[in-house]
């Protein structure tokens, strides 16, 4: 038991469930406000975006801290982003539209903010499906190419938020700024010329590292596509 409790993954898993636990607690105590469906939609959408950005932060964080082992948590973070996206999508089709398929179809075609949100959700599905070891092995190099979809997905997610607010774009812009920062932090490793300017150097392979150690030695970085892989 003590061994299990010392596993950081368990704590991370519990932490990732907190936003859902909060919604359940608020719902049970009547704390969701006058428009509970709007509250749930906003909350699950926000936590999807947070999940995507945290997932995308793993790679830069590994490089900044030199703690390559952080990669072990990325798949769980990505899958939680997908989990909240599923809750968000379910809230929309069930609580908001009540399975009015014609209405949903019209929304997707006619409302740009729903179009991009829906596109982001659909693109997330193959990433979630291929997040296990078996699929990683099967897809080989193409796995990484596929998981680079996380970049357009995060971008579509931020645009989805930006286009839906009536006037106050502060929050979507904050998400946009964080995403931009996370993408910029990837640039130095893409552009070999800039690499020498970076004081931290290339990431060291983690103690447990096996699979990606080669990449790291070549200075290509470990799986720049910040997505659902465990990586090692």
């Amino acid at each position: 038991m003590g061994r299990v409790l010392r596993n950081p993954k368990l704590w991370l898993f519990a932490a990732c469930l907190l936003p859902l636990a909060r919604l359940v607690a608020l719902g049970a105590s009547g704390g969701l406000g006058a428009n509970p469906i709007e509250f749930i939609t906003r909350s699950t959408g926000t936590w999807t975006l947070v999940g995507l950005l945290v997932t995308l932060a793993v790679t830069p964080l590994r490089r900044l801290t030199g703690r390559a082992g952080l990669i072990r948590y990325r798949r769980m973070l990505g899958l939680f982003a997908f989990f909240y996206a599923c809750l968000h999508f379910t809230t929309y089709i069930w609580l908001d539209q009540f399975f009015d398929l014609a209405g949903i179809g019209k929304d997707i075609v006619k409302r740009p903010f729903i179009t991009v949100g829906f596109a982001a959700f659909v693109l997330l599905i193959p990433l979630a499906v291929t997040s296990n070891h078996r699929m990683m092995r099967r897809l080989g190099r193409r796995w990484q190419q596929l998981h680079r979809l996380i970049y357009p997905i995060a971008l579509l997610g931020v645009i989805h938020y930006l286009w839906l607010v009536k006037k106050d774009v502060t929050q979507p812009l904050i998400f946009g700024a964080v995403l931009t920062l996370l993408l910029i932090m990837r640039l130095p490793w893409r552009l070999g010329a800039l690499q020498t300017l970076w004081p931290f150097g290339a990431v060291k392979p983690a103690k447990a590292g096996r699979r990606r150690a080669d990449d790291a030695r070549k200075g290509r970085g470990v799986n720049a596509a910040g997505s659902f892989s465990r990586g090692q």
Binding site: A34, N35, I37, F98, G103, R111, L164
Partner: peptide
Amino acid sequence: VDHPRWSQAKERRIGDFFK
């Protein structure tokens, strides 16, 4: 006449489940 970004055909009466 829809808002350019969303439909105005339906509304949620605060307190109601269905639109």
